[in-house]
């Protein structure tokens, strides 16, 4: 069993936090993991992505080959489209619907929505709203992780433990808020 995941977003939106939580969860399940990140210049408001590979056996390449990703998990709608060539035919795209508009030529959100909904397997949710609704407004990234949790090939308990591991340094209040966000995201995607 092997799951290849592209995490997408804009620098500062918290995709490395998602990656860290999935990484911990994979270790609890004694899986092999490789996770390539983007550091440096591109982090300043630019498009960023992380390649995350989880497997029962050793992983060779740090990068996912084109056409191999089982999941594109994006915290920003346009960024989800940027990595489509990595997606397998049976792959899922799970994306936040709230745009991050820091460029002047941001395309029409309707076109982006149409494009994503035309894919065979996609989930489009307003993670910012769900995060606010569960009193954890800064956790839209973790809402997205919850929304994608069914497609990661990992148990939800492991994922919850992964999120706890990531936030435990910041105290129980922040940890609890993120667990709420994780569960809210999960529930929302199950309803779709």
């Amino acid at each position: 069993m092997k799951t290849d995941i592209i995490l997408a977003g804009v620098g500062g939106q918290g995709i490395l936090t998602i990656a860290a939580a999935i990484g911990f969860a994979s270790l609890y399940e004694k899986k092999f993991v490789k996770q390539a990140e983007v550091h440096g210049m591109s982090q300043r408001g630019g498009a960023v992505q992380s390649h995350l590979r989880i497997s029962d056996g050793p992983v060779s390449s740090d990068l996912i080959p084109l056409g191999h990703a089982d999941l594109i998990l994006s915290v920003e709608p346009m960024e989800a489209l940027r990595y489509l060539p990595y997606l397998t035919r049976q792959g899922w795209v799970v994306t936040n619907s709230v745009p991050f508009e820091n460029i002047s030529d941001y395309p029409s959100i309707n076109r982006i929505e149409q494009e994503l909904k035309a894919l065979p397997f996609s989930i489009w949710i307003n993670a910012d709203q769900i995060a606010r609704d569960c009193q954890s407004p800064k956790s839209s990234n973790i809402v997205m992780l919850g929304a994608a949790s069914a497609y990661l090939g990992l148990g939800f308990d492991s994922l919850r433990a992964g999120v706890e591991q990531v936030f435990k340094r910041k105290g129980s209040e922040i940890t609890d808020a993120n667990i709420r966000a994780l569960e809210a995201g999960r529930n929302c995607s199950l309803k779709i």
């Binding site: 408001g45 630019g46 056409g67 489209l81 489509l84 792959g91 076109r111």
Partner: peptide
């Protein structure tokens, strides 16, 4: 590396042409 070895590469769907680039910028 696949192409150098003469192996097939099967990319997923194309990136839509309306996609804008998002270069890094000052905060």
């Amino acid at each position: 590396v696949a192409i150098a070895l003469g192996l097939e590469v099967n990319p997923g769907p194309d990136i839509p042409d309306f996609l804008a680039s998002r270069p890094p910028s000052m905060c």
